Structure formats: C-alpha cells, structure tokens
Amino acid sequence: MEAVFKSDRGKVRKLNEDSGGIFKNQYAVLALVADGMGGHRAGDVASKMTVDLIEEKWKRLNGELRAGAAEEWLYQSIEEINLQLSQYAENNPDCTGMGTTLVAAICTEEFISIAHIGDSRGYVIDQSRVLQMTEDDSFVNALVQSGEISKEDAEHHPKKNILLKALGTKGKAEPSIKTIVPENGTIVLLCSDGLSNKVNEDEIKMILSGEYSLEEMAEDLIRVANEHGGEDNITLAAVKVNVPDEGGGPL
C-alpha cells in the first residue's frame, strides 16, 4: 500500500497545531490526523500527545486485526487517550482546556476502518465517487442534521468552528467508527479542516484521480488549500489500497 503524510502551517498561522502520521506493520497501515486546540501551545501538545500515544499502542499490537477487532481497538484506544489527555491538562495548568480532534484509519486489503471525533474528516475515493465517511461533531453540522440550515449555509456560518466533541474532555469520548471493504485503487484521505474547508469534493476527486504519485497528489491538495486562503494549518494522511477488483461496500 502506498501512503503519505503531509502537514503545512498554512499562510496565516504562526504555529502548526496539527499532528499525525503513517504507521505500518506487516498486516496493516494506520493513518492519523489530529487538529489541536486550546490556549497558547496547548493545542499542539494535545495533538502530538494523541498521535504519540496511539502510535505506542499500535507498536504493542501482536498479530493481525480483523475488521471487528480493529473497530474495538480503535474505540478502546481513543477512550484511553481521552482520559490521559484530560488528566494531563488537570496536572498542567498551562494546558488547561486543551483538546484535539482525531481521525484514524486502519487500512488493509480486506477492510478499512475509520474512527473520528471532532471535525477532522475521513474520505474514501474510488473511480466513481468521493464518499465522506465522517460527520463533523460540530454545532453547525448538528443544525444541518436537524434541517435548520442547509449545507451551503453551514459553509459560512459564524459558529462553524464550535465543536460538540473532542479528545481531552471529561467523560466518554465515544468516537464514531465505520468499516468498508475497499476496491482496487481505493484512496483513504484523512484531513484537518484546514483542508476540507478550502478544497471541495470535486477538487479532491479531480486531484486524487490523477495518474501521478500519491505524494504529488498530496502536495497538490495542500497547494490548492493555500491558494484558497490557507488561513488554518493544513494536514492530511492518504493511503492507496491495491486489491483484486471485486467490489466494495459496507461491512
């Protein structure tokens, strides 16, 4: 499987509070994107801690995960990390109120499991479509889901950045998790809102349908986000899965 991780500060922010990475073992690829938030430097602490902690758990895995076990591993790992972040903030006053989004994908030739909390997104791209696998845990998306505003209104809503869920809060994190069966050439794209707010699905499909490398495609996505303003940090992780073309769908 081809995989790439890229993060850019953008054109406005002085600090990059995003984190993430690509982590491989002999059975699967784990892709991560976390977008930190909080007071001075607390956001980058939260996002980096999250990525470091889940990477440690990944390295301790013994054996191959099947689809159901992968979902359970993601859920339990995220709940444990949520508790660790909350405790760290309590013990470190400079990090009071810190938190982070997280979108994580375990990718194999047999299945792709995507977990998320917050408004960082996970997409699946194949030859015919761009499918958004995650629903933003945000105030504005709740208004969209209830029918109070349209998706078009949501794009420019003044409270667009208010999150209803994030890692680092007290209590349960309760991440959302979905699993699909990939097609040959399926691309998994995880990104912070610095990308998804600036590059629409048509542009994503056009770029990721190219005949060049995943690395070059990732660079193009970041370039377009910056050309459209680049007001936020821009981070993505992408994985291309090559399997026999037997079709895919929900498990």
Rank of each mutant, 00 (worst) to 15 (best):
G229E: 07
D18N: 04
Q132P: 02
L53P: 03
A28I: 02
S196Y: 03
E80N: 05
L189A: 09
Q145E: 12
G147T: 09
G185S: 14
N233E: 10
E155V: 08
F23I: 10
P175Q: 01
Q87H: 14
K59E: 15
L208K: 14
V33T: 03
T169P: 01
M206H: 13
D119K: 13
V224I: 15
D153E: 15
L65T: 03
D136R: 10
E215S: 15
K165D: 00
A28T: 02
T108P: 11
P244Y: 07
E216K: 15
C95K: 11
I149E: 12
Y212E: 14
E211A: 13
E216Q: 15
A3K: 06
D232Y: 10
V199S: 06
L163I: 13
H228G: 01
D193G: 13
R41V: 06
S176A: 07
F23E: 09
G63A: 12
F23T: 01
M206C: 09
G21C: 10
A89E: 01
L53C: 08
E71P: 02
D44F: 00
Q76F: 02
Q127N: 13
G171E: 04
V241M: 12
L195N: 08
I114K: 03
L208R: 11
G247P: 04
L32A: 01
E174V: 02
